[in-house]
Structures are given as structure tokens and as C-alpha cells.
Design a protein around this nucleic acid. Structure first.
Length: 563
RNA sequence: CGGGGCGUAGCGCAGCCUGGUAGCGCACUUGCUUCGGGAGCAAGGGGUCGUUGGUUCAAAUCCAAUCGCCCCGACCA
């Protein structure tokens, strides 16, 4: 492609709204433009990247027997009412009415439509298993779109669904998808972890997420390098290192004006790990006391899995339930339901005495108070791995894909059933699998860039070669460039030909910004010796070759030449 | 939905505090020079200062409302 015939609006300066690296570079390199919060236009270069990623996704899904279909974006409300999600999902679903005032919504995902289709078209065990997928626009009225294309209100998603006779079949389909996803992300050049995740409101019996490490990510995972344990922190177990517990016996101590853990520790000259943080919460069943070690943080999601929804108690509620202010409450003598973090099973601690200005020392959980045990603390780097006790690492990640074992939730609701060999009616067992092409693109940029710009993995680069004649007013250079351009195209190498009449500096800066894998420079410097230059964007490696060999050498340097 | 910030030319910004009718850099157009890492000179084009209302002789500037965008948090099927 000739630059002069393309829309590649590069920017010299960072756009003011862009914060994340990938967002800045995608805008500066002319891949995308923002239309409104969380709504983006993909420009030609951005579109090519998406096409590359989608092609890889299609290949890998077809390889495991996936069949591509296209489902509507516009759905009748009844479908979602039948599965209960019409009511369960809140403001995040775009809802509208048609001219006949019928309720409709825009699809956030397509389990309902798949189950509807299956209910009509699948009748016999002979029809199963099936794998159906689409690459389709999804709409979600996100509370807070952010980080460029990482969290948007309208986005492309590859979603696939497996239909099986039973759990055994689902396991097999699930495993195939897991492998396909790994191949997709590897081919796209991403570093990633596969982690256990919370099925959440998808409802289901098992789930994994595919996480690409990046500062721009919204999630955190805990990972063990030794045994490979990997889980979303919402789920991750961890064994915080135990402090050395003092031999103190149970006694009440005055702690005037010391309310926070820090103040109490400063006063008593102890470390926070020797205290218990007591939090009064209010659930739909009433007050609840949650306990974590003083140096740990409560993980609200973990707690809500065992205790349901809750909110922090107000000050007057704390006073009326425990008889003391928030800085002095504790589990000893409290008559409230209590959940204590697993890490508190051993040790002796300082806790609030439920008496303003006093704490208790030498409190032994299980002896001096009773509680229900649960893992409710936030895993941190340095904690012990729950499987092998090696050191866990917590890192920020971008969720690029997820897979769920749905089971029969949707098939039961929408009567997607089949007859087995015995002629008995059985619900179809479903799986659901999503992957976000835009997130893959953004994660690739997050993971592969430098001060100057993007460094595309060859597999998803919008073009492979950046052909750059330094001065297009030099007839000899142009003649050579045109010839090499033709040759490269003949070799089926995707080439962006910067035929603009711009100063060299401008063209070089743009080349670095766009980050195509190979730059082929035609300039007087090398031309004096009858050579042209090839430069590898990733390594900075440079070599000179005769013009006649340029196209062939360029192709050879690309480890993933375009087909 | 809570907290914070910002809306002035295509992009990045100044001007606002202390009202007097808009400016800088880049980009764009034309000409000349220049040509291997974001050129120089000269001449130009482009803005209802987010919107609405109020105060005032006079509002980008002060007041109010409203809309939009960004960041932190909550939420995230």
C-alpha cells in the first residue's frame, strides 16, 4: 500500500485523554479514533490488525471443529426474560423499544440466542456435539469505559458455544477450547497466564481466564513460578508468612487514642501481623463480623462468595452492636456471626476489646472466640503458594479471554433438549468461550513497544515491511523503490510504501511509531555503495543488501511471511 | 453511582485569579531554500472560547444549570 493513498493519520504528540501506553500508541499511530466514551472507529491500520487477529482466531477455532455463524445484535426481551437475565442484569444492558413498543435489547453476549437455536435445531444425541462461534459486535453500557480499546461500550468479541450430551463431552470441548485459546494467544505473540476464575453471574461449574500481564490491566492474578499455580486474586488462595507470636496471656490493655492498626502497633511496638482487623458489615441477614490479620486486606469478592452481598456498617450500628467505636471492636465476647480468615487459625493476637480505648492481648482464635473459617484475605506478592508454599507473585493483567462451563442453565431455561439413545429427554450441556480481538491488539502493544512506538509481533502487524525511500525527489531512489515495491508484492509480502514527499526525519519517526517488523530504507548513504538497508524493528539489527536481493532478503528475514 | 480534573482552531496548550471582544506551538495552503532522525524564511486560511441562562455598559474570564471527556473508587454476565 502506498502511504499517499492511505489514511494513516499519525500524531506527533500524545493525545490528552490517553493514559494507557496502548491507548496513546494506537491513537498516535493512526489505528483508532474515539467517537464517544468507549466507542471507537478503527482506521485502516487498526482494521488490518483486527483482521489479522481474527484470521488467527478463525483458523484455530475451525481446527477444533468450530463452525462460524452470525447472530443478531438486536434481541427480543422475551429471550432474556426466559433465562432470568433480563431482570438480573442492570444498567449494563442497552434496552430499547421498537415502533410497536416491544421491548428489545442489544446483545451483551449470546447464550440465549444459542440456546434458542439449539432448542429448535438439535433433537438427537446424533446431532451432538456442536461448536458454534461468531465474531460479532457486543454492546454493554459500561459504567466506566477506560484505557482506550481495553474497556469499551461497543466491542468486537469472538464468542463460541459448545453443545454436548453430558459433562464428559463438555470437559472435552472445554479442553479443546483451552488449547485453541493458548495457540491463538501464542500466535499473536502475547505472554499470558491461564488462571482459575470465578464463573460469576454466567452461572456455571468451572471457568478459566486468559490473562496477559500488563500495567494497564484491570485484574490481578496470583502466580506461582514453581508449581504453576495461577488464579485470579478474586479466587487465589495464599498463605501469608506467619510472624513470630509472643507468649502473652490474655489481658486487657489500655490503648488510649489508638484506633487504627498502625496506631495500635506503634503504641504497643508490635507488627501489624500480630493484630486482628475486625470489620463490622451488614448483610441481608444482619450484622456480620469479618476478621483478617492486621497486615492483610479483606477481599470483598471472596467474602461475598461466602457471605452474600454486604456493606460496611455505619458508626452508630457499630456502637449499638458492639458497644464501642470502630477502632476498638473485636470478636471476643461479641455475639454476632463471625467469619475469620484462614490465616488466623494459628497465633496469638491483639484485638479490639469492644470497649473504647482498650484492646485485648494474647487472644487465641478458636479458644477465646469462635468463628467460621474462610479464605477472605487479598493474596499478595510474597505470600506462600497454597499448593507448594513457594513464593507467590501478584501481577496486573489484561483479561483477553475467558472460558466457562455453563452446564444446563440456559438449555433448561430455553428447553434446549435432545433425546438420548434410550429415548430419554436430556438438556444439552453448554460451554461458553469469549476472546477479545481488540484487547489482544492492545495487550500486544502493552507488551511490545519502546520509547519510539509500537513493536508489532509479525503475526499481527498491519504490514510486514515498511519501504522507505529517503527522498522521493530523487528519481533514482524512486525508481528503485518502485521496483522493490513491485517485487515485494510479487513475493506476497505485505508492504507499506512510504512514498510521501516528507523530510527523512518525519518518515523515520513515523516508521518507528508504526512499528512494522522490517524497515527497508533506500537512501543515498547506502546507495553510494550500491546497497539498500534492512532494519529489524524489534532488535535494531541492520544490514545492507544489494537492491536486486532486497525483496528476497526481506522475505527471508520474516519468520512468519504472509501467505 | 461516589470523589477529583478538564472542555479555547484538526492536535497539544496559554489567556480566566484581577471582565474591555482571542493567542502560541504543531498541522494545513502558497512561494523560495533545504533534504539520512519530527527543517528555515515569507505570505495565508481556519475558532458561535462545550451548551443554556444570569450579572454587567461590556463575559473565554464572574454566577448558576446542563452536556461531554479523562482519572480514582464502586460495578463489570
Amino acid at each position: 500500500m502506498r502511504w499517499t493513498k492511505s489514511l494513516i493519520p499519525t500524531l506527533k504528540e500524545d493525545p490528552a485523554e490517553a493514559d494507557a501506553v496502548s491507548h496513546r500508541l494506537m491513537v498516535r499511530a493512526g489505528l483508532v479514533r474515539q467517537l464517544a466514551a468507549g466507542i471507537y472507529v478503527y482506521l485502516p491500520l487498526g482494521q488490518r490488525v483486527m483482521d489479522k487477529i481474527n484470521a488467527i482466531i478463525r483458523e484455530e477455532l475451525n481446527r477444533i471443529g468450530g463452525q462460524e455463524i452470525t447472530m443478531p445484535v438486536l434481541h427480543p426481551a422475551e429471550l432474556w426474560q426466559q433465562t432470568g437475565r433480563w431482570a438480573a442484569i442492570g444498567d449494563e444492558m442497552f434496552r430499547l423499544h421498537d415502533r410497536g413498543n416491544r421491548e428489545m435489547c442489544l446483545g451483551m453476549t449470546h447464550e440465549e440466542v444459542i440456546a434458542w437455536l439449539a432448542a429448535r435445531e438439535i433433537h438427537s444425541y446424533r446431532d451432538l456435539p456442536q461448536t458454534w462461534y461468531q465474531i460479532q459486535t457486543k454492546l454493554r453500557d459500561e459504567a466506566r469505559p477506560k484505557s482506550g480499546v481495553l474497556r469499551t461500550r461497543e466491542f468486537l468479541m469472538k464468542d463460541s458455544y459448545t453443545l454436548d450430551r453430558d459433562e464428559v463431552g463438555l470437559d472435552k470441548s472445554y479442553q479443546l477450547h483451552k488449547e485453541a485459546y493458548c495457540r491463538i494467544l501464542e500466535r499473536c505473540g502475547l505472554a499470558f497466564h491461564v488462571v482459575e476464575s470465578d464463573p460469576g453471574m454466567m452461572g456455571g461449574v468451572g471457568a478459566h481466564e486468559f490473562m496477559a500481564p500488563s500495567e494497564a490491566g484491570e485484574d490481578e492474578i496470583a502466580h506461582c513460578d514453581r508449581c504453576g499455580y495461577s488464579a485470579n486474586v478474586e479466587l487465589a488462595g495464599s498463605h501469608p508468612r506467619n510472624p513470630t507470636f509472643p507468649d502473652s496471656t490474655l489481658e486487657e490493655i489500655a490503648t488510649p487514642n489508638a484506633g487504627t492498626i498502625e496506631e495500635v502497633c506503634a503504641l504497643l511496638k508490635i507488627e501489624p501481623a500480630l493484630t486482628i482487623k475486625s470489620l463490622l458489615l451488614v448483610t441481608k441477614d444482619g450484622p456480620l463480623l469479618a476478621l483478617v490479620r492486621g497486615d492483610q486486606h479483606l477481599h470483598e469478592k471472596k467474602l461475598s462468595i461466602v457471605a452474600g452481598e454486604f456493606r460496611p456498617a455505619h458508626r452508630d450500628e457499630i456502637l449499638s452492636h458492639l458497644g464501642a467505636g470502630p477502632g476498638s471492636i473485636g470478636p471476643v465476647g461479641a455475639t454476632l456471626p463471625t467469619i475469620a480468615d484462614e490465616s488466623l487459625r494459628v497465633g496469638r493476637y491483639v484485638v479490639g476489646a469492644n470497649k473504647d480505648g482498650f484492646h485485648l492481648r494474647g487472644v487465641v482464635p478458636g479458644t477465646h472466640f469462635q468463628a467460621r473459617w474462610a479464605d477472605i484475605h487479598h493474596a499478595r506478592s510474597g505470600d506462600g503458594c497454597p499448593r507448594c508454599e513457594a513464593v507467590l507473585r501478584v501481577e496486573r493483567v489484561i483479561e483477553v479471554g475467558n472460558i466457562f462451563k455453563l452446564g444446563t442453565k440456559y438449555s433448561l431455561a430455553l428447553k434446549a433438549v435432545y433425546l438420548n439413545e434410550a429415548g430419554e429427554e436430556r438438556p444439552i450441556v453448554m460451554g461458553s468461550y469469549g476472546i477479545g480481538p481488540a484487547r489482544i491488539a492492545a495487550a500486544a502493544i502493552e507488551q511490545h513497544h519502546d520509547q519510539l512506538g509500537i513493536i508489532w509481533p509479525e503475526t499481527i502487524a498491519p504490514y510486514q515491511v515498511h519501504l522507505l525511500p529517503v527522498n522521493v525527489r530523487d528519481d533514482k531512489m524512486v525508481e528503485l523503490a518502485e521496483a522493490i515495491y513491485t517485487q515485494l508484492q510479487g513475493e506476497r509480502v505485505e508492504v507499506l510504501y512510504d512514498d510521501r514527499d516528507e523530510r527523512p526525519g518525519v518518515k523515520f519517526k513515523d516508521a518507528d511509531l508504526l512499528g512494522l517488523p522490517l524497515r527497508l530504507t533506500i537512501g543515498s548513504r547506502a546507495l553510494k555503495e550500491g546497497m539498500v538497508e534492512l532494519k529489524v524493528r524489534k532488535t535494531g539489527e541492520e544490514l545492507r543488501v544489494p537492491p536486486s536481493e532486497a525483496a528476497a532478503r526481506a522475505k527471508a528475514l520474516l519468520s512468519h511471511p504472509a501467505k
